[in-house]
Nucleic acid binder design. Structure first.
Lengths: 142, 142
DNA sequence: TTTTGATTTGTAATGAGTACAAAAGTAGAA
DNA sequence: TTCTACTTTTGTACTCATTACAAATCAAAA
């Protein structure tokens, strides 16, 4: 068993999530992914490793991860939820041309100015989403 | 015809949207609404005034409004889109207890620090969403 | 080994939104 | 007015993401 899988196992345990094979592999997929995959995409790729896994398990697992604060839901791209590991707080940028979602560095992120109260409401979470044309598409278009 | 409807008519024309009865009534509904309704909610209420209106017309109309910059889509509450008139740029707060969506004043809004470029990407739009417990629910809970 | 509880699976259902073609409405030309 | 061309509206069927649920499987403790 690779060190990585061992690490993930320990990490999940530390978050009160029983580290089953399915959960470990989904976590591993998220860690290896540079994108911000949808549940569907995660299923498509993980099913190649675990042919018997069901889509429901992917949804269940993501739900558990979100509840334990391991994973964050992104609702930047309309109706479909994308998933991202909850690392240091950072914003996201959606390219309206190629559809890719980019991480914004924590230093540049507006969300860093996180307040715990706004206009009398208690704030638990702030999400800042930028939309436009990404660097690569800008260069390609010229 | 009330002044209000006349105003809406002129406003839609100024935005290159042909002011049909359906569009005027949907616009009127949005202006009167303090909430940030979903397409479903808009349909439910507008159909009381125009019994023959179809849900597709509501979706079509909202799409036209969004394209012309009259209305803004909010994807703060997971999978369902809420709609808001595009007034001065402002953020939104979702109460996780009662589900209401509140406007944040432009002065308090993080999105006001709007940048036109971030990490080399061209920014056309910024959305900041807060989630937590609203003032009213906080008071009620004590 | 038995028991108990958690996890996984598969299927069916829900809910939001879209596609599409027919019907109705609108405005201008003849 | 009537004809024509174009836009809007309608209704139905469909897609896609997600959830509900109950049966099956698995895992750990007694």
């Amino acid at each position: 068993m690779s060190t990585k899988v061992e690490n993930i196992k320990n990490y999940l345990e530390s978050k009160n999530v029983k580290p089953t094979y399915h959960r470990i592999m989904i976590m591993k997929y998220l860690e290896d992914s540079k994108e911000h995959p949808t549940a569907e995409k995660i299923y498509e790729d993980v099913v190649k490793t675990i042919p018997t896994i069901s889509k429901t398990t992917v949804y269940n697992t993501l739900k558990v991860f979100v509840e334990e604060g391991i994973v964050e839901e992104l609702n930047i791209a309309g109706t479909t939820t994308h998933y991202d590991l909850s690392k240091q707080d950072h914003d996201h940028f959606l390219c309206l041309e190629c559809g890719r979602i980019y991480d914004i560095s924590p230093e540049e992120s507006l969300g860093r100015n996180c307040v715990d109260t706004i206009e009398g409401n208690k704030v638990d979470e702030v999400k800042c989403y930028y939309k436009g044309i990404c660097k690569e598409c800008l260069e390609k278009d010229n």
